[in-house]
């Protein structure tokens, strides 16, 4: 196995095994098997840069490296893509911190 990327949406993370020479389309096809959403309804965004990844380019071309986090967004009913939404576990603690009034 050459590398893997972490594809995240809401509370779910998909670990996808891949190779730097694979294209984004290849990755979307792998995702299609897992989430039953056609490739055309998927958009992948490299979280570190906020860049929307291009289907025809390879992972290496777009600096997607091992262990990178990629956001998945899906096409909504009105044909637009939803915004990036990744819930992080720390979000659970924010309200508690606010109540306690602790500032660190």
């Amino acid at each position: 196995m050459a590398m893997y990327i972490r594809v995240k949406r809401n509370k779910t993370t998909y670990f996808i095994q891949c190779d730097p020479t694979e294209t984004i389309l290849d990755i979307k096809q792998k995702l299609q098997n897992l989430i039953d959403q056609p490739v055309n309804d998927q958009r992948l965004i490299l979280v570190a840069t906020g860049e929307v990844l291009d289907d025809s380019k390879t992972l290496a071309d777009q600096k997607v490296e091992n262990d990178c986090i990629v956001a998945l967004t899906l096409r909504k009913d009105d044909n637009e893509f939803e915004d990036v939404n990744i819930i992080r576990p720390d979000d659970f603690y924010q309200s508690r911190d606010a109540d306690g009034g602790l500032n660190w």
Partner: peptide, 24 residues
């Protein structure tokens, strides 16, 4: 990568991680 070859691990807070069975 087929769905049957993956497994979903769920954390205490209900977050889901889908990984290859081989990795798990």
């Amino acid at each position: 990568m087929k769905k049957e070859e993956t497994v979903k691990l769920i954390s205490a807070e209900g977050f889901e991680f889908v990984i290859d069975k081989k990795a798990a």
